[in-house]
Computed example of a mutant assay.
Amino acid sequence: MFSVTVRDHIMVAHSFRGEVFGPAQRLHGATFLVDATFRRTELDEDNIVVDIGLASQELGRITADLNYRNLDDEPDFAGINTSTEFLAKVVADRIADRIHAGGLGEGARGLDGLQVTLHESHIAWASYERSL
């Protein structure tokens, strides 16, 4: 399996409901490094996994929609604990939508899988992996 990863970041504010979250129940900020890893079993006709420029551009568009937002105020996340794991899935699903819409070029239609990892810090991160 071949893979290519592009990276961006987001800074958000949010709070959680539930005792399991302790002090994070209060409004707090979070900064995430966002890695999107594209996978395919065979390289395309240009011998690449995906156009890195287009992948970076589309990831940037998706992160821009989340960056500097209080996620508690976003209608898409009303009543949802926007955990790191949950946000990894949100980003992955939005990238998949862009792939299917042609935003990463025709060659990206041959991608087999996608993994998005949100790094909370240098010692903790969460990922979501999906087929395409």
Rank of each mutant, 00 (worst) to 15 (best):
F2M: 00
S3Y: 09
S3K: 14
V4R: 14
T5E: 00
T5G: 08
V6W: 03
V6R: 06
V6G: 02
D8T: 12
H9R: 07
M11R: 13
M11C: 10
V12H: 03
S15M: 03
F16D: 00
F16M: 04
G18R: 15
F21G: 03
G22M: 05
A24S: 08
Q25N: 14
Q25M: 15
Q25T: 15
H28G: 11
G29T: 09
A30Y: 10
A30L: 10
T31H: 13
F32Q: 05
F32G: 07
F32R: 11
L33T: 14
V34C: 05
V34K: 07
V34G: 05
V34H: 06
D35T: 11
D35I: 07
A36P: 15
A36M: 11
A36I: 15
T37H: 05
T37Y: 03
F38D: 00
F38Y: 11
F38I: 03
R40E: 00
R40I: 06
R40M: 02
T41H: 09
E42K: 15
D44T: 14
E45H: 09
E45C: 02
D46I: 12
D46V: 13
D46C: 08
N47K: 11
V50H: 05
V50W: 09
V50N: 00
V50K: 10
D51M: 04
I52Q: 00
G53P: 08
G53D: 06
L54H: 07
E58M: 10
L59R: 12
L59M: 07
G60L: 04
G60H: 02
G60F: 03
I62F: 09
I62D: 01
T63I: 12
A64K: 15
D65G: 12
N67M: 06
R69V: 03
N70G: 02
L71S: 03
P75L: 01
P75A: 02
F77A: 02
A78I: 09
N81I: 07
T82N: 09
T82I: 13
S83T: 15
S83N: 04
T84V: 10
E85W: 12
A88S: 15
V91A: 02
R94C: 01
R94S: 05
I95H: 08
D97S: 12
I99G: 00
I99D: 00
I99P: 00
H100N: 08
G102P: 10
L104E: 00
L104A: 03
G105Y: 07
E106R: 15
G107K: 15
G107T: 13
G107W: 10
A108K: 14
A108R: 15
A108Q: 04
A108N: 02
L111N: 01
D112F: 06
G113R: 03
L114N: 03
L114M: 04
Q115P: 02
V116Y: 13
V116S: 06
T117I: 11
L118M: 06
L118Q: 05
L118C: 07
H119W: 11
H119P: 12
A124Y: 05
A126C: 08
S127V: 13
S127E: 04
Y128H: 11
E129V: 12
E129D: 00
E129M: 10
S131R: 14
S131M: 06
L132H: 09
L132S: 04
L132V: 13
